[in-house]
Each structure stands twice: as structure tokens, then as C-alpha cells.
Amino acid sequence: MTTIITDTGSDLPKQLLDEYEIIMLPLIVQVNDEEYLDRSNIEPKQLYTYMKEGAVPKTAQVPPSIIKETLTSCARNGQPAIYITLSSGISGTYQTAVLMKNEVLEEYPNAQIEVFDSQSASLGYGLMVYEAAKEAKEGKSFDEILHTLQHYQKHLEHIFTVDDLEYLLRGGRVSKTAAVMGTLLKIKPVLHMEDGKLFPLEKLRGKKKVLGRMVEIMKERASSLDDITIGISHADDTETAKALKELIIEETGNKNILVTMIGCAIGAHAGPGTIALFFLNTPKKVS
């Protein structure tokens, strides 16, 4: 069986990691002059508390030694492995993982190892990992799983909003003027991902209006919302995530919705109150 590996930016819940034997590697979180391994010795709620108190966290990629050790273990045991990483457009983890893969292949030239750039973030590539792990458990081949990942990479949509523009300002996603005016006017930006990078899409006033628009965009972009898993991730805002889920069910009838909390790696940049929606605009064909 192909081993599926990911990192903590994928925001998958522990029960799915355990059920599908997914290996999750930790990104690094730096806050209040301390360095942590995401989801190892710091949890999202703790980070969001720090942020609400004024802390400005930073993140770093998965340590190369951890990547190499994990890939070496798979190669040594003759296990095919696919490591699905956070988008190369927002993290250096993919590039580092490729270097580590090449080093492992020098020692184990016959090993079947691939590093896959999700061009995605949060539960966006969490859904990719989830689908790959399901296929691995079903006995699909290495190449079949890669084919599915390529479909997701091409057709996965990310629509999200943030509660406080200050966090996007720190990350250089909006100008200082836009952040100040947006806060004063209670403007909520709607953003999306394109080619693995974040881009503003629309600006609306009021959270309820934003949630409605997010669902509208999903319905506009998706050729079908039947038989797909829709993902919702939130940064310590279960109430809004629940409201979005109920709105999706009401508008589309699709109840196959996975809801999870945004972890430290993504939450450090998006900030508390972020809400994100993920879906395929073209369903995967059943082979």
C-alpha cells in the first residue's frame, strides 16, 4: 500500500489521520520568542489566544531532517510513498522535500517516492490527502493516486474570508490604507487561490453577506456539487463554520461536508476568525 504523507498545513483532523494511516509532518511556529512544532507542542487554540493578546507569530517549513528521516524509512521498508505538501507558492517545504527525496533516492535508487506540490493550503490540500489516502487503502496503484492528485490540483477551489484585515496586512496581502478603511467600514474581503498563491476576489460588508456570497461563488464555479466532499475550515470560529455548513446544505443539498479547525501553520498568517471553503469545480471521474 502506498504511504501518504502530508504536513500540518493540511489541517486534517486526527481521527482521519489515524483511520487512513496518514503520516503528518510538523511545520514550525515561532511565537513569543519560542519555537514550536505545529500540533506537537502547540495547538491552534493556544496560538489564537496569543494572537488575540497581540502576538505576531511566524512560521517556517518542515525541518529537512524530519522529511528525510520519514522518506528514508519508507524507502528502507520498500513502501511506495507520496508526500503532498503545502503550496510551493506560500512555503519552501515543497522545494526542500524534493531535495530530501533526491538524497534518499541516491541511497535507495529503486525506491518509489514522489513529492507532490498541492498548490493549495489548509483543508484544500487536506481534501487531496484524504482522497489519496482513501485510494491507497482501496489498493489503487501509485500512478493512479498521482493521477487523482493532479485532478485535484487542477480543479480544487479555495474561497475564504478573514475576520481582521490586520493579519493580511502583516503578510503583505493588503495595503495599510485598505486594512484601516476595511476595519472602519467593517469590510470583509473574499479571497481565493490561483496558481498556488492568494489573491483578493471581492469586498463585502458584513459576515452574513460574505457567507452567502461564498456559497454563490461555489455554485457558480462548480459544474456539479453532487458526490463531492466539501471542506470548511475555520480559525476558532465554530459558530460561523456551522452557519456556513447549514447554508451549503440548504442551497445545494450536499451534506458531505468536512469541517475542521485551521491549524497554527495557516492560522498564524490568516488570523483568528478566518473561514475557508473548498470544493472541486469538476468532480473526479470514477474509474
Results as ranks from 00 to 15, higher is better:
Asp117Glu: 10
Gln95His: 13
Ala136Cys: 14
Pro283Gly: 08
Ala132Asn: 03
Ala133Ile: 04
Glu106Cys: 07
Ser65Asn: 12
Lys137Thr: 10
Tyr130Arg: 02
Tyr50Pro: 01
Leu191Thr: 01
Val259Gln: 07
Ile275Gln: 04
Glu250Asn: 08
Thr282Met: 11
Ala243Thr: 09
Met193Trp: 12
Ile248Arg: 02
His147Thr: 12
Lys58Arg: 15
Pro200His: 15
Ala241Asn: 03
Gly139Gln: 05
Gly54Ala: 15
Ile113Tyr: 13
Glu135Ser: 03
Ala81Cys: 13
Glu69Ala: 15
Ser224Tyr: 15
Tyr36Trp: 10
Asp7Glu: 12
Lys101Trp: 11
Lys186Ala: 08
Glu103His: 14
Ser88Arg: 13
Thr70Cys: 14
Ala121Ser: 08
Glu114Asn: 05
Thr2Pro: 06
Leu184Trp: 09
Ala268Gly: 10
Ile23Ser: 05
Thr274Phe: 08
Gly172Ile: 12
Ile217Ser: 11
His151Glu: 01
Phe160Gly: 00
Lys68Glu: 07
Lys219Thr: 12
Glu21Val: 09
Ser122Gly: 05
Ala276Pro: 01
Ile228Arg: 07
Lys176Ser: 05
Gln153Ile: 06
Ser87Tyr: 08
Glu106Ala: 15
Gly78Ser: 11
Glu194Gly: 04
Glu135Tyr: 06
Thr85His: 07
Thr6Lys: 01
Gly92Ser: 11
Arg39Ala: 13
Thr183Val: 10
Phe116Ala: 01
Ile232His: 02
Ile257Tyr: 03
Thr177Glu: 01
Val104Cys: 07
Ile23Leu: 09
Gly267Ile: 03
Glu19Thr: 08
Gly126Pro: 01
Glu216Met: 14
Gly206His: 09
Val115Cys: 00
Thr240His: 12
Thr238Phe: 14
Val56Glu: 11
Val31Lys: 09
Thr229Met: 15
Leu149Val: 05
Lys45Arg: 13
Ile5Ala: 06
Leu280Gly: 01
Val210Gln: 09
Tyr48His: 03
Leu247Pro: 00
Thr161Lys: 02
Lys176His: 11
Val190Asn: 04
Gly9His: 04
Leu149Lys: 04
Ala133Cys: 08
Asp237Pro: 03
Leu225Gln: 13
Ser118Asp: 04
His192Tyr: 15
Cys264Glu: 12
Ala55Ser: 11
Glu246Val: 07
Pro189Thr: 04
Gly263Pro: 02
Thr6Pro: 02
Ala136Ser: 12
His192Arg: 10
Thr282Trp: 05
Ala268Thr: 08
Val180Trp: 06
Lys197Ile: 10
Ile232Gly: 00
Gly9Trp: 02
